[in-house]
């Protein structure tokens, strides 16, 4: 199936999802659905770097929160800017951070990159905590508009649609890459870097592309967050649960294809939404940790691997 055809199909699926959510009529569906969709974007973005090229990013929270804080800054300085423009800005900032990090650490062994991303999350949080303009450690309040600016309905429906479209974009991009020249280059890097170089693959440039693309999508996913939570502080924006979820979802779904992160995010995201309501949020996080460890030990190819023989 061609990329355009797949993209149209994904849009139809998105439209059906939105229509179904509206038919249920309960605003909680949009609040919960938004979080699941946000994880679809994050997991897919993570997998472009982690699954395709084999470089593990522990700093999802940093890329994500940088997108969110870009929105906080823009909301205070240019409040008239529409949300999609803020998302582009947040994506650009996070992509640049990814590029910078990658440039410094991607020449080294993959583990050093991973450790650096972990440390970077701590530092980005330190910077934001000390930056009073965005509220410092006290956090920032954002007023959520009441109504959607483009169709009749609550603003949360608008946020839901935005995240739905971003998920479509992320999945279509991830799928297109997988079947493209870029995808073969990424796979070669993941499998054997010296052999990839010897085959003419410009490994450093491709790794930088993957890092920037992955970081940029994460930043875009974080940009609407301030409007969703209406109160954002560093501890919640940089929560470790973002990093754990975004790693757990592709690994549970399967990292080799675009489908794995999608399955993982929908399953695990929905499970957590249910568990948070019915049990407790701490226990639902514990569940994610246990599932992650369980899957990497027992099912190295994830759920998708069960259906491939």
């Amino acid at each position: 199936m061609g990329n355009i055809r797949f993209g149209l199909l994904a849009l139809v699926a998105a439209a059906v999802t939105f229509a179904a959510a509206r038919a249920i009529g309960n605003p909680y569906v949009f609040f919960a659905g938004y979080v699941v969709l946000q994880y679809v974007v994050l997991a897919t973005a993570w997998n472009i770097l982690g699954g395709y090229t084999g470089y593990v990013n522990f700093g999802t929270a940093a890329f994500f929160a940088m997108g969110a804080y870009t929105t906080v800054v823009l909301h205070k300085t240019v409040p008239v800017l529409p949300l999609p423009a803020m998302m582009l800005a947040g994506g650009a900032i996070s992509a640049l951070i990814g590029l910078g990090m990658g440039y410094l650490t991607l020449r080294l062994r993959g583990t050093f990159f991973s450790i650096a991303t972990l440390a970077m999350a701590v530092v980005a949080q330190t910077l934001i905590t000390n930056w009073n303009f965005v509220g410092g450690s006290r956090g920032a309040y954002i007023v959520r508009p009441r109504l959607s600016p483009i169709f009749p309905g609550d603003y949360i429906q608008y946020l839901f649609v935005i995240m739905l479209l971003l998920s479509v974009l992320a999945v279509v991009v991830a799928r297109a890459i997988q079947h493209s020249r870029l995808g073969y280059g990424f796979a070669a890097i993941r499998d054997d870097e010296p052999a990839a170089e010897a085959s003419g693959v410009p490994t450093l440039r491709l790794k930088l592309i993957a890092t920037a693309l992955s970081g940029g999508l994460m930043g875009m996913a974080g940009a609407p967050l301030p409007y969703y939570v209406t109160y954002l502080d560093p501890a919640s924006g940089f929560s470790l649960s973002y990093a754990v979820n975004t790693i757990a979802m592709p690994l549970i779904g399967g990292t080799a294809t675009w489908l794995g992160p999608l399955i993982g995010a929908v399953l695990l995201g929905t499970l957590q939404q249910v568990a948070t309501v019915t049990i407790s949020s701490a226990l639902s996080l514990l569940l994610v940790g246990l599932l992650l460890v369980g899957f990497v030990i027992a099912a190295p190819k994830g759920i998708v691997g069960w259906f491939q023989r």
Binding site: A188, D191, A195, S199, G200
Partner: peptide, 13 residues
């Protein structure tokens, strides 16, 4: 070789 790729894809890179 690239272990996760098929022979055809190994050569395709």
């Amino acid at each position: 070789p690239f272990p996760t790729l098929t022979l055809a894809d190994n050569v395709r890179v």
